[in-house]
Design a protein around this nucleic acid. Structure first.
Lengths: 203, 203, 203, 203
DNA sequence: AATGAATGAGCATTCATTCAT
DNA sequence: TATGAATGAATGCTCATTCAT
């Protein structure tokens, strides 16, 4: 239990600094790329001294990991909650796709970090893969299997492969959106993907 | 098996060195990641002096680009040639998907470079995007439009989006294959992807 | 000589902290070396906050100086007092040597700081030299000169050089004891040193 | 077998650079202390680029070790050679003492590194102790034992302790010489030390 | 007096690239 | 062409010290 002080006062910056650094890092990484970003850049952007970064994160790499972890946790959490309100597996997949693209579409910098910076090394990718990403794929897969049991989706499909296909399609939408010079809304792409996908996997 | 040429002719050695460096780079990048790979590592692996690398490539970055360019050129060239033999747009898409995964599945190191190392910076991605990749997407798209005109594919779909979906699904197959601890054949995944995809986009 | 005050009065605790920090520093310096010791380590070992260290010492360097000063003051003080009880210059030198090695032999950490950490920079050495050390050498020298006047020691020797020789021999005993892997008593070495030394300087 | 080229030409700097760096390091360490010396300082003093230092030495620490190793090897080598020409153990000890102080007295910077910089950490001291220094003490000891067998030196003395005493006395002469503000010749001190020492250890 | 979060100067080491041979 | 010694710019991280509370 925190002391009353921590509750009453406008908080001595504790979490604020960490948050500021994380936000700054997303911006800096998105604009310069992870390897070209200097810790000093992040510190300046966050309005703290270089050394302060190390009071909250063990290393530059840990900052990247923290960005990923926090975002995935939030995303999966939100998804699970909203899925409880739905029953039709098709609606659930639509929901997942919408949340996926809405979230990335709402924060271009974060999207760049997710779609590009996080992909640049097998090391990151493997951890990324092992961590939240696997959980995300499993979520899609379980919804699909639920649909198969309900007779809504084709029985002859491998649920694991199907999950990857849906993820891959959505992921490509996000990556293309980031790299595109034209400015358009990302979220609506979910419908087009789902249209084809559901048509393809439905009996 | 190398062509007799490399064995018989006194070759100016020129191409050989360049080729050796490129091959060495694919291996080194795949194992250490682009940013962690030293030019000296590539030189050693290629059996040449550090300075020699710069007789064939302007910079470390250009090596990465050359890997990409050469591979995409080969891939698109082969695809175009094989597509000429087919008439059914569905067969053509199957052909594209097969070649895509066969090629990556045949050279794991190259696949790692393509699926991971080439993705790690917006800069690369943008160039990547602007260069051969756009051409590749355009190829898929034109085949799809051909199918739409022929009344084989749904008219209500945006061909550009459809192309991205197919590419994204295939791309995810490749990335997952690389990161997976299990060893399986990549090429056969093409059929499962196409099954769903074609079912989804067909009238 | 400490006043009774320090013992009887309820002291403002002030001295306690200073003492704790000094003790902690001896231990930390002895185990990690002066340059590798962090002020934070000393603070933790002393059970105070980092900032508190600076309420008692102006800098990390001053802590090292204080360790030296306090120890030398105590040592010279004790030596002077005990020497008053003796008359034979030979006994006095034996007393000095015994005290020297007993003191270091009784506190290995302190000995490490004295024999090693204090030696690592000309700057320290010069100050060290200028301060108590000179006083210590002078003490040995005066006893020797007393012996020369008394006709006990050879007249043809330079008292200053003789003092250095005795100090050097004792110092080497201490340093070797610290670095030795074998565990033996340091104090008894004083006799062996004095045996040779006195035999050498005696008429 | 080196190519003739390496033999005929004034050598492409190979050993020259290493030598220059070593010499520069001795000077820089002597003037600023090891911990306060920057590799960049050494490089500048040696007239090479910072990176060049790392072509010849693995680290800053290795430079210090190399200074020590090279000097001790030279010193012990010279000592052994000159001792062969002598037979009287007393002359041999005189020779050792003279060489010891002559060598240090001839290169004040080197002497500073030896007497001060090399002493500043138990880590260095232990390696120092384990390496050439032990060999040096052993040399003194064997000469003394030779004298004991010859009936020249007292039989009741522990040769190991005696060796330390002589070394300690000489070492202190060197250290005092360095720290002294007065400028005097170091080598002649050897005689005064030996006078007392031999008088002390002789039957 | 005491705290400990915040500061920011400082530095060893790496490595892409060059160029004299 | 080929070499590889030499370069020197670049940067993540540490830690002594300060100061608002």
């Amino acid at each position: 239990m925190r002391s009353a002080k921590t509750i009453n006062l406008p908080r001595p910056a504790g979490g604020d600094k960490r948050e500021a650094i994380l936000r700054a890092a997303i911006s800096v990484f998105a604009h310069n790329g992870y390897f070209n970003s200097k810790v000093a850049d992040i510190a300046r952007e966050a309005g703290v001294a270089d050394g302060t970064v190390y009071l909250y994160f063990k290393s530059k790499e840990e900052i990247l990991h923290s960005i990923f972890d926090r975002s995935v946790d939030e995303a999966v959490g939100e998804a699970r909650k909203k899925l409880e309100l739905l029953t039709d597996p098709r609606d659930k997949l639509r929901q997942i796709a919408s949340l996926h693209l809405e979230r990335l579409g709402a924060d271009r910098d974060l999207a760049v970090v997710f779609q590009v910076e996080l992909r640049g090394s097998t090391k990151f990718m493997e951890e990324f893969s092992a961590a939240g990403f696997a959980e995300y794929l499993a979520l899609i897969r379980s919804v699909f299997e639920e649909g198969q049991r309900a007779g809504v989706f084709r029985q002859d499909l491998n649920a694991k492969v199907v999950a990857k296909i849906l993820f891959g399609a959505l992921d490509e939408m996000a990556t293309n959106w980031i790299l595109s010079k034209r400015r358009y809304k990302l979220a609506p792409m979910a419908d087009q993907v789902l249209d084809i996908f559901l048509n393809g996997v439905t009996e």
